[in-house]
Design a protein around this nucleic acid. Structure first.
Length: 300
DNA sequence: AAAATCGTCAACCGCCTGGGT
DNA sequence: GACCCAGGCGGTTGACGATTT
């Protein structure tokens, strides 16, 4: 339905605009977040230890973004304490990786992306992180969701050997039927390499077992997007920031303090203070200081 | 108009792995 | 080798909007 697609696009664009600070939501989640701000959260709002659960508020997003931007993710479990968040570390990590970090691509999947997902899923199975690693800007969670909500259904049906682009997400029954009949663009490409599952290969979390098996020039994973050449996201505002995050030799996600001082000083001045949050002292170091100068000696 | 059902996706949970001691 | 901890991954849940009945 054209109207529905338009609505989705508008929602997505609105979200992108908001993402400069905080992307509240897309696909009808805005209302939910608004409710959250009024103390209505998804399931229990706090666990036994007083940690918040459920949907993140814009304020929490701001705090997390500002803190990680300024200090990096030196330790996810300790991070919330210093960032002033009533969240568990896992929740922070997930929120950052799936939502807040620069270069996260949201919205509709291109035909190429869907083909990649289908092809890799045929060869790798549910190795969402490995699949996501081949899709710059996409997260494993998002790929997984997209598979379950769109691609899986489309390709499950044997009458749908070939399918069209995945832009259309919802429509009337009639439109869905039309979509079925008209979809001919996507094709399942059988896996050429033999399926090698994770269970058969020991691997480091930073190096998914599958990555060196399905692609010789892929050496990265979902959490570290070091395959810079493949980054084609046209969200330039995010890209610029993302590039600041990417070091020539290191990984932001696994080596928290790789920035050179010039990058750091500028981001330190603009991002941290602009967010307007005062963080607890960084645990390794004492209070106000030329933080990053010390890091060079500390970590390298 | 209201209720029922469906589709979407952010977030949680539990398990696994690797590194350090 | 055993234990602990942190990070990572995949499965699942559940709230909400959209659509259908």
């Amino acid at each position: 339905m054209a109207e529905y697609k338009l609505l989705q696009i508008l929602k997505f664009e609105a979200g992108k605009i908001e993402s400069k600070g905080t992307r509240v939501s897309e696909g009808g989640k805005a209302a939910k977040v608004k409710k959250d701000q009024g103390n209505m959260v998804r399931t229990p709002s706090c666990d036994k230890s007083g940690l918040r659960k459920g949907t993140w508020t814009p304020e929490e997003d701001q705090k997390l973004r500002a803190y990680v931007t300024k200090y990096g993710c030196w330790n996810w479990r300790q991070l919330p304490k210093y960032a002033g968040l009533q969240r568990c570390g896992k929740s922070c990590r997930l929120r950052w990786l799936n939502y807040l970090r620069p270069n996260v691509k949201r919205g509709n999947y291109s035909k190429e992306e869907e083909e990649t997902i289908v092809r890799l899923h045929a060869s790798l199975g549910n190795k969402w992180s490995a699949i996501a690693a081949q899709l710059p800007g996409r997260t494993d969670n998002e790929v997984k969701n997209h598979w379950h909500t769109n691609l899986n259904k489309r390709f499950k049906d044997k009458t749908l050997e070939t399918q069209a682009d995945g832009q259309f997400k919802r429509g009337t029954s009639k439109e869905k039927e039309e979509t079925k009949l008209n979809n001919h663009d996507l094709q399942i490409v059988p896996a050429s390499p033999p399926l090698i599952l994770e269970s058969s290969v020991s691997h480091s979390p930073a190096q998914p077992a599958s990555s060196d098996q399905f692609s010789s020039d892929t050496k990265d994973n979902n959490s570290v997007d070091s395959n810079k050449d493949s980054v084609t996201d046209d969200d330039n505002s995010n890209k610029a920031l993302f590039e600041a995050f990417e070091a020539d030799s290191g990984s932001f996600w696994t080596e928290p303090f790789f920035w050179d001082n010039s990058n750091i000083n500028s981001s330190n001045n603009t991002l941290g203070s602009a967010a307007g949050y005062e963080f607890a002292e960084f645990p390794f170091l004492g209070g106000e200081m030329d933080f990053y100068d010390q890091l060079d000696g500390f970590f390298f």
